[in-house]
Design a protein around this nucleic acid. Structure first.
Lengths: 339, 339
DNA sequence: ATCGCTTATGAAAACGATTTCAAGCGCCTT
DNA sequence: AAGGCGCTTGAAATCGTTTTCATAAGCGAT
């Protein structure tokens, strides 16, 4: 019985072929089911594979097939619950497909984003999912000539690029409308960064809701944040420092709502008894804030999963399609009828 | 002037060579700085590269060099703030190195973990970082014969494997000690899953602190959770349902502390006025809970960064070393002297 | 002017798989 | 019995790089 030669590295398909006394082609055929091979050889090869613990070298496979079985994910912040929840969806969408993902961060910066994109392309990813990208649609389309791209936050639909867009304006409108229904008239708004498209849309939703209710817009009630907790806290303090009167606050995302909540706590102002608070996103943690946060739910997980499935479809030459559930108001315990 | 031939796919090194009128070897040499080449050719090649937007095919490079410039990260939960913070450290540690990372999840399951590990190996990652792995040290050592591995939560030190271990017991002890110093004698403990090594160590720390203070251990004050918010809430309710008397709660991680906090809120019990609460981890969100959470800080970010740097060193044949900062008590606003 | 000796460069092999192509074999048909 | 067909199988080319290896050119020394 021939022993395993004391090979240096991991075993190759060639090694297996030798062990089993067949040609490499045959091994490959068995591995891929590309052609019929006689049962005796199949058995011999399978045994050899098992014995040598052979696993195909994915770099070699990738080179030859032109498929890396890898997709690239561009996020903006690798440790934000917002992206994580989406990534979980991506992960589930990839489950059982043989694809793995490499995740890079654009850090909210169009330049860096494009850079990372090129990096992914050089790595021959089979497709890219772009989350909350800052680059122009044009740029995305450009990249999409190399590899299919699915992006959130854009309305795109070509053979090799697909975008999902949520109606941020309506979402924000729902949030403010909810407050208005509870009798609030003086509603402060902690916005997102002005250069962010989602942020401006949410601002638009805020103003629209006010307009529809015939409430005069007070610019002093709007303060710009940057989506982070600290900015929510700062914004809140700014509102107090300038002695604004209001009974409710709408934060453009949950994170800044958390910050606002803390500022309120520090002032000894009760939520929702004294002031109502609404967020936007419905991060996983928002069901466990004190009190649990009323917010607009983004189907983050679904977005990840559906984007992934759509990308896989495009990669396989099928039609690019997919739709995500709409935004939804989740009423928890930070809002209440004005006294 | 020769025009770019209407090439089908992205341009290859061969294309560049043709464009510049040199051999592929020369192009490669310029790309890698492997050998001196005359200035005129260098210029021509550089121009060609620029013109054709050439970027080396990483699969081909990887195949040839035996380096994929990719490292694998095994986490247990792709969307947990705990891992995210560490991943941020990894990301920063990788910055500027040319390495990218592929992240997979073991879902707290030793079998799946080993599976994912094999998958990474087949992808020819140049090294692996294992975070909170469930597999045995033996198994890790086994894998480390194929690729260097750096793991958290183990005391390991071989040529190709390195482990970082934090002193969970002392950390837990610090937390409980802090409560005792504040006059608390009846301190409940919401533990982590019993099959988790960190969890049992923290339990040990809890009992040790009590023993050192000559406080009798009351098993009824210990309830097992699973590190998630919901379990913290359940645990808290269980404590109330069984009519336990206590003035403080130590939760084995921040997430379950969040859950406990919510249970308390629901009962109308004030924190820290009526009951003190301590967590473990110091997740990014813990500075923004209401009130901000007193907790034991794990240097999550540093762990990620340092593990990465250590792995890179091992990959480059240098000595495996690295040390992470110790656990630290962060006193915020959920603890207070017992009345 | 000739003989080394260094240098720059190209040709070709190699990495580890897949795939085309051709060959060998058995079997059916006439 | 001969020709043809289909089936399994191996040899060799290929993917896009890097890396020997060999060669030619350049140059100083004698």
């Amino acid at each position: 019985m021939a022993d395993v030669p004391h090979s240096s590295g991991p075993s190759t398909l060639m090694d297996v072929a030798r062990q089993a006394g067949v040609s490499p082609s045959t091994v490959s055929r068995i591995l891929n089911g590309t052609a019929k091979v006689s049962d005796d050889k199949r058995l011999a090869v399978l045994a050899a594979i098992d014995k040598m613990k052979f696993a195909p070298n994915q770099m070699a496979q990738g080179l030859k097939k032109g498929r890396s079985m890898t997709i690239g994910i561009v996020v903006q912040d690798i440790s934000s619950p917002f992206f994580d929840e989406t990534l979980r969806g991506v992960d589930d969408g990839l489950k059982g497909t043989g694809y793995a993902s490499v995740i890079v961060s654009g850090h909210w910066n169009a330049e860096e984003e494009a850079d990372r994109m090129r990096l992914l392309l050089a790595r021959k990813v089979d497709g890219i999912i772009l989350l909350s990208g800052r680059m122009s649609d044009q740029a995305v389309l450009g990249f999409s000539s190399q590899r299919p791209i699915v992006s959130t936050g854009r309305a795109l639909q070509t053979r090799s690029a697909l975008g999902f867009k949520l109606d941020n304006e309506s979402g924000a409108c729902m949030a403010v409308h909810h407050l208005i229904e509870l009798g609030h008239r003086r509603i402060a708004f902690i916005s997102g960064p002005a250069n962010n498209i989602d942020a401006t849309e949410r601002l638009a939703g805020y103003t629209r809701a006010l307009r529809e209710a015939n409430i005069e817009l007070d610019q002093d009630l709007i303060v710009e944040g940057n989506y982070h907790e600290a900015s929510g806290m700062l914004a809140m303090n700014r509102l107090f420092d300038t002695h604004q009167q209001f009974t409710a606050v709408f934060a453009a995302n949950d994170l800044s709502a958390y910050g606002a909540r803390l500022a309120l706590y520090r002032k000894g102002i009760r939520v929702p008894d004294d002031i109502s608070l609404v967020g936007f996103d419905d991060l996983p943690g928002s069901s466990y804030t004190t009190p649990p946060l009323t917010t607009i739910r983004q189907p983050l997980y679904d977005i990840g999963r559906i984007a992934t499935q759509a990308l896989l479809r495009i990669i396989n030459g099928e039609e690019a399609r997919g739709e995500v559930p709409p935004l939804e108001l989740i009423v928890r315990e930070t809002t209440r009828r004005v006294r």
